[in-house]
Design a protein around this nucleic acid. Structure first.
Lengths: 167, 167
DNA sequence: ATAAACTTTCATTTATTTTTGAAAGTTTAA
DNA sequence: TTAAACTTTCAAAAATAAATGAAAGTTTAT
């Protein structure tokens, strides 16, 4: 396999993976492309490499910047904007974890608390509902706290986790 | 908020969450419904409660069983099949983690290994590509191993993780 | 064997999500 | 200023994913 083929395969794979995780395909592909580029990449180049429209490139680059995992760069004497991806994987994972916690876990917790707090009329159905949603709330809250704790380590958190866990 | 409203809200929320995690909405809704039911539920009831077609109910129940998080139950003297969800959250999380590792992480690892193993012609581009995909491979492999290790604990793994991590 | 009770399959339809591209907006250099 | 170089927006189109429902398939009781 030669370079171009490998690069393409990587971008496609990362894209497909993205869509299984609630991130759209193009967004994941752009991220993949930037991650393996040695230099900052212009929007034009992104469009060219991935064969996508200007609007699509613009919107997804924006979304990646909102996630905090792609940065704009300005080059001296250049009008155009260039983009680079966060390449440090610990940092990348931490940012994704934080963002998903904020966007998905926290709102879910709010609803779990709400629905688990209804007054019960003591039918088996209602008792089961309250019990299960309460357990869910506790579980998700605990998981979210662990996530928080882990992301505090930032550098090398995964290695530290391995060490803690293996012994 | 009364019971029916709370139940509906929970099912809707769980469904929306599902679609952000690569599971389809109906599948997540059925799972939510079963999880808070005190008794096993027939396909007919699932169709009725979620207002979905027979085919849809059948296919998504099947998928949930493939994931190992919903079980069939037979009632004496009943022709119909009934369904229950895994209600133990540690167990649920472990099953989901295992399944996603098998379906998504393992195949991704295979590709990462492939693409990071191309011969380099020593251009900056190729060096960066090989370096980054190699790092990704190592990172994902390490994460997958931690997942494996965690799921071995099965009972109370989350609590154990909290304990390990907080100290 | 057969018919009733039930489940699964899959071609077609429907709904949702993503992409396009042209117009509007912005920035910078002269 | 103004016009060239570039980016963003968003309504419409295209692509993708999910749902329907009727026919085919199973199972079980008699």
């Amino acid at each position: 396999m030669e370079f171009k083929e490998a690069k393409n395969k990587f971008v496609q794979t990362w894209g497909a993976l993205g869509s299984q995780w609630g991130i759209n395909k193009t967004m994941a592909q752009i991220h993949a492309l930037l991650m393996v580029s040695s230099e900052a990449v212009s929007m034009e180049e992104v469009m060219e490499e991935l064969q996508i429209s200007r609007g699509n490139a613009s919107m997804n680059l924006r979304a990646l910047m909102d996630w905090g995992i792609v940065y704009k760069e300005y080059k001296a004497g250049e009008r155009r904007e260039f983009f680079t991806a966060e390449k440090d994987l610990d940092e990348l994972a931490v940012k994704i974890a934080r963002e998903r916690s904020k966007r998905e876990i926290k709102p879910a917790l709010k609803i779990l608390k709400e629905v688990s707090s209804i007054p019960s009329n003591n039918t088996a159905e209602e008792i089961q509902f309250i019990e299960q949603t309460t357990k869910l709330y506790d579980f998700v809250l605990k998981a979210d706290n662990v996530l928080d704790k882990i992301t505090e380590y930032k550098d090398n958190w995964l290695t530290k986790l391995v060490v803690k866990f293996m012994k």
